[in-house]
Design a binder for these strands. Structure first.
Length: 497
RNA sequence: GGGCCGGUAGCUCAGUUGGCAGAGCAUCGGACUUUUAAUCCGAGUGUCGUGGGUUCGAAUCCCACCCGGCUCACCA
């Protein structure tokens, strides 16, 4: 954008601002007491119509000017607010000298309008303005009304323009809020207590991820941003909070793509005296409840798919499934080289993998996840790739763990929590040694403070982590995580300096 | 990190073989008291992503870089 041209645009509007002040009008007043939103106004009018009553109430609405059609001694203004739009009619013979104020108004300005409602010749519900107020004079032009704003970069960098120009952006924000609110209610109704745990932590443990690091000056101490809420929540279960959950941001120092943002939101819950089978039932109930709340149905359209979230979701045995699709039984390949060879023979690129769990993860990602379209659970993971999950009582090589998948996307990870402190210590030590061996910053870390906590005794507990962003994508039909995060991470640009 | 595509007016987009930088909307001036992508008359609008190079001449060709999208790799 040309500096000069931009300044010319703004100069015109600054002149109009001055002109308003000359007319004794404050272009930036402190408040406006509206009586109706656009939708409430419409509903009120239709209700009086349905009673065959005349609408003679004076109401006050407020919003941003999104369009105007001047007709000389009458003007129509499209006013946009959080609920939608309402047309305002301004007539010179009604407004008298105040009609001149319209000369100083632009698309983008905020106004309040007072008057009564009627239908125009073409049937449009319209507010006949008897008075109006300038609420905020804007200085910059908005995106064009017809094509709107489509430039993806501008939509993400200047989210407010996206929200102004694209109705879908607002709908997604509202639905995300509804989704989180529904989850809160669901959990609360089941007796879960919501908590907040530290984001700045001395050890970023409880998951496989590379953490962000930072430094606290006063304490002269290096800290990390949490990669999960898991270990703090389990400390609370040790403390006797039998049902606990947290909805919060976690941070992982990794790449950005359609399904990943370095900061994202999870809902983790822990419920004493339950195992992963109970958690599976809860996930089905939770997600289908949210789906119904947002879409009015447990069947949801996502891209080309019709997704049916109604319980129960299929439980797919991980080992059997891998055997079916690749002919590999991971119990037959407990050594790295053996698994690597078997996968290589199945045509999988194993050049980037070094650890056994990394290889198996790659096998699952390549061969299984893409086939999981309808909601389902993969159950019973190898202990080697599940350092926080309890071993199956019937098979010590298997952990009581499951992950939920929809459209090839992992939406949750859950297990019967490992509460044997001796076993947990051994598993952490194994992770530490793997990190040394493979120089892998993402391997989980030993958290001594957590181990001491569970040495005091954590009851049998079923735990869950749900990716709120991905769930929102699925239930709002958005193909990219950047569409459901208001300010996604982008590379720096000139505007940031 | 690799590959492909893209970046031109506030917004949406054209721009031919290398030959004066274009349209619609928005903006500015004028007309218009039921319009709604209002209409009609008139006007202005540019660091062609950035920096080099080739050329008499570059939005256009070449090189490097920046930003975005898709995709592969990596990553839950």
């Amino acid at each position: 954008m040309s500096q000069q041209n931009e300044q010319e645009f703004m100069k015109v509007r600054l002149d109009k601002t001055a002109s308003l002040r000359q007319k004794g009008i404050d272009p930036y007043p402190t408040n406006y007491k509206r009586t109706h939103t656009s939708k409430e106004a419409e509903t009120a009018f239709e209700s009086s119509e349905s009673r065959n009553a005349e609408f003679n109430q004076t109401i006050k609405v407020a919003g941003r000017i999104m369009g105007r059609r001047g007709m000389g001694k009458a003007s129509f203004i499209d006013l946009s607010d959080i609920d939608g739009r309402l047309q305002i009619m301004m007539r010179k013979n009604v407004l008298n000298e105040r009609y001149e104020i319209l000369d100083d108004l632009d698309i983008g300005d905020w106004i309040g309008a007072e008057g009564t409602l009627f239908r125009t010749r073409t049937g449009q519900i319209t507010l006949q303005s008897e008075n109006f107020s300038v609420l905020c004079k804007s200085l910059r032009p908005l995106p064009e009304k017809w094509h709107g704003l489509t430039d993806v970069e501008t939509r993400f960098r200047q989210k407010y323009l996206d929200l102004i120009a694209n109705q879908d952006a607002i709908i997604t924000v509202k639905n995300r809020s509804l989704l989180v609110g529904t989850i809160r209610t669901f959990m609360s109704d089941r007796g879960f207590i919501e908590v907040e745990t530290p984001i700045l932590v001395p050890i970023a443990a409880g998951g496989m991820a590379n953490p962000f690091s930072t430094h606290h000056n006063a304490l002269n101490r290096d800290l990390f941003l949490r990669i999960a809420t898991e270990l703090h929540l389990k400390r609370l279960v040790v403390g006797g909070i039998e049902k606990v959950f947290e909805i919060g941001r976690v941070f992982r120092n990794e790449g950005v793509d359609l399904q990943h943002n370095p900061e994202f939101t999870t809902m983790e819950s822990y419920e004493a005296f339950t195992d992963y089978n109970d958690v599976m039932e809860m996930v089905e109930q939770l997600v289908s409840t949210v789906a119904k709340k947002l879409n009015g149905s447990e069947t949801v359209t996502y891209g080309n798919h019709e997704l049916d979230f109604s319980p129960p979701w299929p439980r797919i045995d991980l080992r059997q499934k891998i055997l079916e699709v690749s002919g590999i039984d991971f119990f037959d390949h407990l050594e790295v080289d053996s698994l690597k060879n078997a996968m290589s023979q199945s045509g999988i690129d194993v050049s980037q993998q070094s650890s056994w769990s990394g290889l198996l993860d790659k096998l699952i990602s390549d061969k299984i996840e893409p086939t999981l379209v309808q909601p389902c659970f993969l159950v019973d993971y190898p202990v080697a790739m599940s350092p926080l999950a309890k071993k199956s009582p019937t098979d010590g090589r298997i952990a009581e763990r499951f992950e939920g998948f929809v459209c090839g996307m992992e939406i949750c990870n859950a297990f019967t929590e490992l509460n044997d402190p001796v076993d947990q210590r051994a598993r952490f030590e194994e992770q530490e040694s793997l990190r040394q061996q493979f120089q892998d910053a993402e391997t989980d870390r030993l958290d001594e403070d957590f181990l001491i906590a569970i040495e005091h005794g954590m009851p049998p507990t079923g735990g869950l982590g749900i990716g709120i962003d991905r769930l929102t994508m699925l239930l709002t039909n958005n193909p990219s995580i950047r569409e459901v995060i208001l300010f996604p991470q982008l590379r720096s640009d000139r505007m940031e300096g």
